[in-house]
Design a binder for these strands. Sequence first.
DNA 1: CGACTGGGTTCCTTCAAGCAACTGACTTAG
DNA 2: CTAAGTCAGTTGCTTGAAGGAACCCAGTCG
Lengths: 156, 156
Amino acid sequence: MQRTNFSDMTCSIARTLDVVGEPWSPLIIRDVWVGITRFDDIQRDLGISRKVLTERLQWLVAHGVLRRRQYSDRPPRYEYELTDKGDEFCDVLMAITAWGDRWTAGEAGPPVLVRHRGCGEYVHAEVRCSHCGERLRATDVDHEAGPGALDQPEPK
Amino acid sequence: MQRTNFSDMTCSIARTLDVVGEPWSPLIIRDVWVGITRFDDIQRDLGISRKVLTERLQWLVAHGVLRRRQYSDRPPRYEYELTDKGDEFCDVLMAITAWGDRWTAGEAGPPVLVRHRGCGEYVHAEVRCSHCGERLRATDVDHEAGPGALDQPEPK
DNA sequence: CGACTGGGTTCCTTCAAGCAACTGACTTAG
DNA sequence: CTAAGTCAGTTGCTTGAAGGAACCCAGTCG
């Protein structure tokens, strides 16, 4: 874990990054999401050291993002699956994918296409207002202190 | 920067995390977004070491997420602002905020409320389909190899 | 029994973050 | 003019996390 304790910050972004703020965790969650759920398969797919994968998986399980599911009794064998908490983190992954497709894919184009089962099209994630449904851009919103804020008047 | 070269991976998530995959960069971008744009103000707000802040800022400028803007000629003084690339990363930050509000805020509730200028309500980011506008959840999409994929048949 | 699979664990090295002090450019007040 | 203050870094050292490689254990199967 990072040395700075981001979970102590009064900021949802920082607290989230405390759980998934290094690169491997989002990639592991992504792998589990697309069906790569076993230790060796994840390790092979990501090229991550077994030690770090073990630690990340334990961390993500401890933080309720993943859970282990036994898929074999003899011998006892486990795979990982997303919890609801992990499921909803995929919103973030989709937003990251959309940004990455736009700014890091270069000439080759996106490595992965996202097809929406509902409409059948290749789509990307759009961030929209939960109330009126309009596109939410950086300049469309104001930040105000919420109930969980400290007594600081400044937005964080 | 991390030792693993995530930019070499054929994966938009990994390439994005190569640029912003440690906790400080998203927090710095968030600060600049909400108007905390000067070195000392960012440093004070985040409690980050001056050394790391310098490095992160230089990195983000080099990767086109931030740019420096001179706000004083005598003495020469700079502040940081979002590029278009950085602007669009705020979509990711809004998705992170929504997830964090839901899963990390606890009893206190969200520290920051997001008010949509368009409809005036306190809202959160919803990830929706760019084509039909429906909510996009983890189980609503399929991943398929795209033009930038290697010759692997597996989704990444 | 040996080979293999699955899922780790251990040890050592390297690198990035944290801390504290320092630096340089510039301005302003006494 | 000098000293103090602001701004934006830079430097040196320590510490913790990641990477790499080897190793380990439990269990199954031929």
